[in-house]
Amino acid sequence: MSLLQATGMRGGYGAADILQGCTINCDRGEIAVIVGPNGAGKSTAIKAIFGMIDLREGDVTFEGKSITSLAPQARVEAGMGMVPQNNNVFPGMTVEENLQMGAFLREDGGAGVIDKVYDLFPAVKDKRYQLAGELSGGQRQQVAVGRAMMTEPTLLILDEPTAGVSPIVMDELFDRIIEIAKTGIAVLMVEQNARQALEIADTGYVLVEGQNRFTDTGAALLADSEVRATFLGGDQS
């Protein structure tokens, strides 16, 4: 049984369902990547998993318990961490304060965890007293991930972490994400850069119109000629 099981999710923002019964699972130490064309409901799927939108049908279980009715805050307490796509740092606060705010729910203030985050992102440590709003896109993304790591989540959810950053920064960020998964954390992310993301994915979900079209290991999806032709921008090598 997986750490996270989101089964048969159906729902959306208004009357029309964006999610048409899609299913996402993610396990400890595993990187699961959701890819698909624009409007496929990728971001909606992780928002539903995190409780930011209500589901009409379907069930989300985390560590074996149903969390379908929990608010996002309660899901953070349960061990989920979320890095939103936009506005994912406190721009007017220093990097260190951003991390401290990530640990707001912790009784101990998170002093020990901050060092772990700094070990993971040495560049962040160098900028610890700088305002997060003044950092480059890639560094800001690292701070955003670091903030979510402060509660020491068992599942880390990332909404397009590499949107708008250069390829070099993207590789660097993916390396960090692999390291995070190696520590036993389940990583679930939505990615626009499908090819690169599938390369590091243990499981890949290809969503189309709110439904699972393909589900396989990242390598198998990359090798699948239909997936390549339809979703990965043709048969490049």
Binding site: Q73, V76, F90, F104
Partner: peptide
């Protein structure tokens, strides 16, 4: 600090448990 965080980015403050 939690007040400043809330002022800066309300949604993220909520996600952080403020």
């Amino acid at each position: 600090k939690s007040m400043r965080a809330f002022s800066d980015n309300e949604d993220l403050a909520l996600l952080s448990g403020i």
